[in-house]
Amino acid sequence: MSFISSYIHIKDKEVWKDNTLIYSNTEGISNNKFYKLLYKQLAIKYMKFYKMDELSKLGLLASEYLLEDRTLTSEFKAEDIGIVLMNRQASLITDIKYYDTIKDATNYYPSPSVFVYTLANIVMGEIAIKNNFKGENIFYVQEHFNAELIHNHTERLLQRGSQQALLCGWLEVEEDKIDGFLYLVENSAIGLKLKHSIENINILKNQ
């Protein structure tokens, strides 16, 4: 039996953790300013953060909030901690940013540091590097949040004993919208002690 022990939802300019609003900003600031404020609030020192694209910033911040009071690598082997993510637009917002560096033949300077983020799964690499998680990774691109797909994959990994803890969720960034939803699934009932089920995942996501 597996459980959801904690969740985080960064939605528009609010941060919710386990049903509690822990941060909100109503000043109508840009996404990037908002990420910077969260970064400062979390008081992490991680220079690489500023180099990341929006999707990776959102994923990293969400994972930092989610794991604020946990060090998973001291509880489980690095290779037993996995990440299962999904979104709608893959890396489109960064694709457009990269395309801007090449679309004009007279101003053609392809940017390697933007190009590297034109893959949606890079965010899993960023979370893995920051936390030293060497487990299973998968990134799905779906039109809508598909709790069943994520749930079933996660359960298969837990049931065959290959993974002990998994960060799962949905990370979507649009120009004026942020929707970062991450939850932690593990075999022991701690924290929220919520049964890992498709229904419960959907309840948390829609809260």
């Binding site: 300077y109 392809p110 390697p112």
Partner: peptide
């Protein structure tokens, strides 16, 4: 990646 970006800067 930063080294590659410096190449772009020079160019």
């Amino acid at each position: 990646i930063d080294a590659l970006e410096l190449i772009v800067l020079l160019d």
